[in-house]
Design a protein around this nucleic acid. Structure first.
Length: 220
DNA sequence: CCCTGATTCGC
DNA sequence: GCGAATCAGG
């Protein structure tokens, strides 16, 4: 069956059905890549190619790193693959050992004025002061007590921009963090894009899953 | 588990 | 040149 790509053009394969990089397709690739579209999105748009193909082409075209910030990959990683040699293998040599992960515990004092954007491009800034639920206690569990102010502020911000979904509107891809009192009209679910795998969006994941430390003694 | 892009290498 | 397989990171 014939199908149309989003542009409305009749999708057509080049006779042999191999789908080659025509000028047009390359152009689309360049444009979308420049726009910051992901390789998979581009592949889906073009059709007939995988994201790998797109990435491969992107590199061959030499337009790897997209201008601007975004996901800037620091440096290339060697990552050589083990090449099988016909000669006998030595028993086994453990090639590398993980570098020591020196992690700094935390500095609860350093507060910087950074401008962060959430997954929706919505700036989340200050408000680090006016945290703490004014009236209602935070609905579900981790009654925000020892959660980082950062996370709390973020949640409060997010809840303003939440999708406010009803129970029936929830899907695998929507944040299922409840807000408000289920017994009242003022009850809804966050509904923002989930953080992959988890049931909540980034902000709510932050308060939902605590490292399981600071919760210990909450004099309450 | 979902997703990203990066690289390698047989075709 | 192409892109699947793989790798590395979020």
């Amino acid at each position: 069956m014939a199908w149309r790509d989003p542009k409305g053009c009749l999708a057509r394969e080049t006779e042999g059905s191999h789908m080659s990089w025509t000028d047009e397709r390359v152009e689309t690739l360049k444009k979308m890549w420049g726009d910051g579209q992901s390789a998979s999105q581009i592949a889906k748009e073009l059709g007939g190619v995988t994201r790998n193909a797109v990435i491969g082409k992107v590199h061959r075209l030499g337009l790897s790193n997209r201008a601007g910030t975004g996901t800037a990959v620091p440096a290339a990683k060697p990552a050589l693959k083990e090449k099988p040699s016909e000669t006998v293998e030595a028993p086994s040599a453990k090639p590398v050992s993980k570098p020591a992960p020196k992690a700094k515990p935390s500095m609860a004092v350093a507060i910087k004025e950074e401008l962060e954007l959430d997954e929706n491009g919505i700036p989340i800034s200050a408000a680090r002061r006016a945290i703490i639920p004014a009236g209602q206690p935070l609905p579900p569990q981790p009654s925000a007590n020892e959660i980082s102010p950062e996370a709390l502020a973020k949640v409060n911000e997010v809840e303003k921009t939440a999708k406010r979904l009803t129970l029936m509107e929830l899907t695998e891809k929507t944040c299922k963090w409840p807000v408000g009192d289920p017994a009242t009209e003022d009850f809804w679910f966050c509904g923002l894009p989930v953080q992959q795998g988890k049931p909540y969006c980034e902000a709510h994941v932050g308060v939902a899953f605590q490292p399981m430390s600071a919760r210990r003694d909450r004099r309450r």
